[in-house]
Design a protein around this nucleic acid. Structure first.
Lengths: 292, 292
DNA sequence: ACATATATCTGACTAAAGTCAGATAATGGA
DNA sequence: TCCATTATCTGACTTTAGTCAGATATATGT
């Protein structure tokens, strides 16, 4: 197959070019994991738990790495106020300086990729990299069921509410909403899907059962940074699939008139507008689709 | 800077997506270097020397890796006929089977990058990857001085002669050519540049002194796989730079009428056609440029 | 023939990156 | 209050990926 061969050639070339980065360039006399850890801690600091998850480290290994960075006076770890078990790693003044140096080395690498090219080529390379970046993100997206009470799901829902509050002309209050309880979005009554990019939650969507055979889609949201990648369609299709698996024959949903991209998505995906079917004060449009 | 930030984002995304490949995917219970070595040995086999150079391995380390693969019955190494010191590593039957598996895993990875996308997105991703691949190759090219008698330079020259023989209507015989001796392309008389892509020679160009202040460009060639990347211009500019460093004020060169891209390149780079200045039987056009 | 260089190999050593078993302390729910 | 869970930490161990110093055999130029 033609396409696959091109993708493999891309993989080879990019791995070779970026291998430099991972082996020597950023390794300023410092093991690679330490540099990655400094990157992940970042200027704001991060919980040890977060660091372990993001870098996929063994807890013992992570702990020992942090002790090492503490000995070098690059990191401090303090307990959080909220949970006495969780500790937060923060960069010290010299840790921040080191992060600055790493960032500037990353910039140098990026510049060295553009420097040998003509202005026209450099511009085309940046454009093509942007395209690959976006489409590779789209292809790396994973959908998975999640309990709406977990931290990740809760975080998405909070961002969803915040966006509604910002976009609705008269704001948004959760208690006035026809809010589904957590159990409504859990099997067997319904289900919630989380959208993840490299493990990080970037969107969500839930489906609940209104009556046997009739479901409703709620809480569908995608982070602004992953919009325009065709994920709305994919998330909707995933939700419909889980609906079908739960023997739903019809799906309904409602939305506000100010959410133009949502209206467009529902129409494009075969939803037809129907009369008001609920008392949701924020709903202005009601849709329905039969699952074949 | 806008472009640099986009390049860095690309680097992050691609590293994360391809990290899977380098850490676990191809590591089917086998250290990464071993897999890379199997890849490099390939179906035809390769000299140990070649493998060390291509993968940048310490000679002792390479030797021990090969012994390990031999113990696992994946590789055989035999002496070459030509040079009693050089040994060639070849894959055994089960080594070939393992290479097949690695290739099919690479294909799977490539397919998994395209699978979640819509046909239109997949096509755009392949196109953008092709563009990045080509331009990243262009930006990874390195120019370096080389002795024309080394294996790498000799290899480029042979391919250059072979191409002339194929393209000239009446063929090409080296002895009939106004061939520069090796010393003519070595300091102080002249110099030869090799074009390398990830260390591998993909082109060459030489400059010799005809008389004080007057130089001539000879043996300029680029491998077909790196054509169309604007490297002709860059190689020519590099040669002119070394000419200037050697106090040349004027550069001449000749070429055959069937080498259309060469004619176009010279004209575009400020060379103007002059009358015949030598007895080269294969020359049909003569050019000159003053180095400012 | 002789010095020098090249290709490979062996053995001893090291650093980086992790794995695993269990200890300790705080949290959350019954 | 008790019990299971979670977050972190410590110590012992392993694998991976090298580096370095030399040994050996072959090739090459003078």
């Amino acid at each position: 197959m033609e396409g696959v061969e091109k993708v493999r050639s891309f993989n080879r070339t990019v791995t070779r070019r970026l291998g430099v980065l991972n082996e020597r360039y950023l390794g300023r006399d410092r093991p690679l994991v330490e540099s990655r850890l400094l990157f992940e801690i970042g200027a704001q600091g991060a919980a040890v738990r977060e660091l372990r998850l993001r870098l996929g480290l063994d807890s013992g290994f992570a702990s020992r790495l942090l002790r090492g960075l503490e000995r070098k006076k690059l990191v401090r770890t303090d307990p959080t106020g909220a949970d006495g078990r969780v500790r937060i790693a923060r960069l010290t003044r010299s840790g921040l300086a080191e992060l600055e140096r790493l960032n500037s080395l990353s910039d140098d690498l990026a510049r060295s990729m553009l420097a040998p090219l003509s202005p026209d080529q450099a511009q085309r390379l940046v454009a093509a990299m942007g395209e690959v970046d976006r489409l590779l993100c789209a292809s790396s997206i994973e959908f998975g069921e999640a309990d709406p009470r977990t931290v990740d799901a809760e975080g998405c829902l909070q961002k969803y509410y915040a966006e509604l509050a910002a976009r609705f002309p008269n704001g948004f209050e959760l208690h006035a909403d026809d809010a589904p309880a957590a159990e409504d979005l859990l099997p067997p009554a319904g289900c919630m899907l989380l959208v993840r990019l490299f493990g990080e939650p970037v969107g969500c969507g839930g489906i609940r059962t209104l009556e046997p055979g009739l479901g409703e889609i709620k809480r569908m949201w995608l982070s602004p940074r992953v919009r325009g990648l065709g994920l709305g369609r994919r998330l909707l299709a995933e939700l419909e699939r889980t609906g079908m698996a739960r023997k739903l024959r019809t799906i309904r949903l409602d939305t506000h008139g100010s959410l133009a991209e949502a209206l467009h998505l529902y129409r494009a995906c075969g939803y037809r507008e129907i009369p008001r079917y609920n008392a949701n004060p924020y709903a202005q449009h009601w849709f329905e689709k039969s699952l074949s």
